[in-house]
Write a protein that binds this DNA or RNA. Sequence first.
DNA 1: TATTGTTATACTCTATAACTATA
DNA 2: TATAGTTATAGAGTATAACAATA
Lengths: 146, 146
Amino acid sequence: MTDQTISTLRNPLDTRVGYQLRRASSLLMARLSERLAQLGLSPTEASILVLIEANDAPTQSDIGRVLAIKRANMAPLTSGLERKGLIQREAVDGRSHGLHLTERGVEVASAARDTMIAHEESHFGILDDEARSLLTSTLKGLWSER
Amino acid sequence: MTDQTISTLRNPLDTRVGYQLRRASSLLMARLSERLAQLGLSPTEASILVLIEANDAPTQSDIGRVLAIKRANMAPLTSGLERKGLIQREAVDGRSHGLHLTERGVEVASAARDTMIAHEESHFGILDDEARSLLTSTLKGLWSER
DNA sequence: TATTGTTATACTCTATAACTATA
DNA sequence: TATAGTTATAGAGTATAACAATA
């Protein structure tokens, strides 16, 4: 592209749904990260808090299974949340620990949930309920089936 | 979750379109990576090859702009592709270089394109043309607008 | 002054392997 | 034997800062 001020390249990937999925996901994750950073959380940490909030003392293995995070990667995440004073561990048996939100964790989890919902509204609010639930179930079908 | 063999946690994120987008994208990228690994390419490298294939000697800055890859990150990618014997650089002016596919690069780019199309078909082939193009344009609207 | 390309660096996410302790 | 949790480590991808050379 030798001499063009506005060099618009031909992009054969532009019509590909897989490429669009990747670009959309990556932009939205970046935007969500910015918002959650105000709570001192990453999207992954926020997801973990919301999952603990909605369940009765899940173990970190439980959470990892649901969110597709490996045990080895859950360890630093949970100890980080504990260090921040957002969760506590209570022994369930000799090897596993149920995770609970602390008082402050309850507040932060609720704020994280609000942030995630607001984020969704700002991006998907234009779609009517039918289109949005169609999109949701189509995307879910891509990874939960097979 | 004290005593459940099948511990199905409640997941409030499950109905969230943003969460589904993330999960779908991450699974599909992992699958695409596996397929492209047989060509010795990452998804990013494959995208770059396809973009060079479709354009007349784009510079790495051109490509970075289209694919949203920063200059600093394009440098090791292009030198990697050059080291693999897939691309060559030709000076356009004193500071920028047009990227060309080598003979072998042409073959690999074509194979990469085929792989990406086959990957899409295996995941989106169930959708009819209308549903697929609606999904494509909805996703594109999420990141290219605003 | 702005742009191209490079190097150095760091952070996140993800992956495997190996280990201890417990069921 | 299988599971829970941990540590170490490595590879992507992405981010900023700083620099030299060129437009």
